[in-house]
């Protein structure tokens, strides 16, 4: 009896996953493919105008993708609202299915990738917390704030010089966690699927210790406090 129930439960779960995948795939073809492309590679005609994220490279996890699809990118700190919010168009179940589809179809191993890249990098020693934050603050103010702003509002001096020349995120709204912020700064926007290539890779300029310090400063100063 127990074996029979286990089989039924397993079959239900598998069926649900398949159904979720198919639902997400259908919605993706309707609402997402014109910008992000059939393979999530953003090789579409509209990509020349709107420059959508290459989903097969995104750093976002499935849950984070769901939040962006639901609320739109601007809600989470993007300086433009080209990636719209779909919460008024689709139900929560449908939105989740799209995120599920994107994750399974294009970027299934992102969590493993983040973990691998992070743990391959240089460690920050726990007994140097003060030094870590000071160092992070110094670099943030010297470099990052020029685009992202002193208070991480996305209003750095370079942002309106001239207007709409760059598109820095308001980091105080970002969905990214500390590890992802470090990896984004280390590898740059293009590596993580941003066609604009405005966010550079800082790995040649700063070592992992410094970049992790910056990520910690951003996380502790702007994200934790919101």
């Amino acid at each position: 009896m127990r074996n029979f129930l286990s089989i039924i439960l397993l079959a239900t779960l598998l069926f649900s996953s398949d159904a979720q995948f198919e639902m997400g795939k259908k919605i993706y073809k309707t609402s997402c493919v014109s910008c992000h492309g059939a393979k999530g590679s953003s090789d579409t005609d509209t990509s020349l105008i709107v420059e959508p994220r290459v989903l097969s490279k995104t750093i976002l996890t499935q849950e984070q993708s769901y939040q962006v699809i639901k609320k739109g990118a601007h809600y989470w700190g993007a300086s433009t609202d080209i990636m719209p919010a779909f919460e008024s168009v689709y139900s929560q179940k449908e939105l989740y299915s799209v995120a599920y589809y994107i994750s399974k179809a294009f970027n299934e191993k992102i969590k493993q990738k983040i973990s691998k890249l992070y743990f391959q990098s240089e460690n920050i020693f726990k007994d140097k917390q003060d030094e870590i934050l000071k160092r992070g603050e110094k670099v943030y103010k010297k470099n990052c704030s020029l685009c992202h702003g002193i208070e991480a509002n996305g209003d750095g001096k370079a942002n309106n010089n001239p207007a709409i020349s760059i598109y820095p995120y308001a980091l105080n709204k970002t969905l990214l966690d500390e590890k992802q912020i470090f990896l984004y700064a280390k590898y740059g926007g293009k590596y993580w699927g941003s066609d604009r290539d405005a966010m550079p890779s800082w790995s040649k300029k700063y070592d992992d210790f410094t970049l992790k310090s910056v990520a910690k400063y951003i996380n502790d100063s702007f994200i934790k406090k919101r």
């Binding site: 010297k142 470099n143 020029l146 685009c147 370079a158 550079p200 890779s201 040649k204 300029k205 700063y206």
Partner: peptide, 8 residues
């Protein structure tokens, strides 16, 4: 000489 915005 470097650029504070563009590290390369």
């Amino acid at each position: 000489v470097e650029c504070a915005i563009h590290p390369n």
